[in-house]
């Protein structure tokens, strides 16, 4: 599904140039659950952003579903992104002014799904995430675990092929964290490819494969049994 070759990314300030990704190459197949680990500043998030087409690389190739996307402009990337990729963040990033229902509905609005269809699909996914009873609440009225379930619901409502999760349990206690990891595992078992950045060895164990980064390069890959 994903094949990146010699991917490069630099950050420049006036005086210093920092290399975030240094000719990184890797591949993720459809249906895989991959964890990316590494110390702070190793380029994990940069990689995730490029994979999620939120940022563009400075060099190298990125083939998504057989299409070279490294040179795509913002509009094309946004288009590809909204139909194929769902995001889950550490800090949930729910919009405070929208209710649970409306937050989850948002991706459907942007992909132009008609209203009646939207209601059906949002209800379906809220039901699956066991958060239906909170549909008319605002994010700040929910617990952290509930908020992350809403965020996951939002990420999957469009039935994306790929979910990118950036430390999804980082702001949760262990029981809520486990619940989220179970949810991601379920999604993966139903066929969704998942790439997750994490600091937690415990969470990484839910994945099929761990890619360890250091200074923008792959240092080791562990295949989980």
């Amino acid at each position: 599904m994903i094949k990146i070759t010699d991917l490069e990314k630099y950050y420049r300030t006036e005086e210093v140039e920092t290399i975030a990704l240094n000719k990184l190459s890797m591949q993720v197949n459809t249906g895989e659950f991959v964890a990316i680990m590494g110390p702070s500043g190793c380029g994990k998030s940069t990689l995730l952003n490029i994979l999620g087409m939120l940022d563009d690389p400075d060099g190298g190739s990125y083939v998504f579903n057989g299409v070279e996307v490294a040179h795509f402009n913002e509009r094309k990337r946004a288009d590809l992104r909204k139909h194929n990729i769902g995001f889950v963040f550490q800090s949930f990033n729910l919009i405070a002014e929208l209710t649970v229902f409306e937050n989850v509905e948002l991706p459907l609005i942007y992909t132009g799904v008609p209203s009646s269809e939207r209601v059906k699909r949002v209800e379906e996914v809220l039901d699956k995430m066991q958060i239906m009873h909170r549909r008319n609440h605002y994010p700040q009225q929910l617990s952290g675990g509930q908020q992350q379930r809403v965020a996951i619901a939002r990420a999957v409502v469009n039935k994306p092929k790929l979910i990118l999760a950036d430390e999804p349990t980082g702001n949760l206690d262990s029981s809520n964290g486990n619940e989220v990891m179970e949810l991601l595992t379920d999604l993966n078992e139903q066929g969704t490819t998942i790439i997750m950045v994490t600091h937690s060895e415990h969470d990484a164990r839910y994945s099929h494969r761990i890619i360890r980064l250091l200074d923008g390069q792959t240092v080791v890959e562990n295949i989980m049994i």
Binding site: E74, H83, N93, I95, A96, E97, Y110, T111, R154
Partner: peptide, 16 residues
């Protein structure tokens, strides 16, 4: 800013 970020990752274009 956060709202904008979320809307963007969920598929909003700049024009929208």
């Amino acid at each position: 800013a956060m709202e904008v970020g979320v809307r963007k990752v969920t598929g909003a274009t700049k024009g929208q």
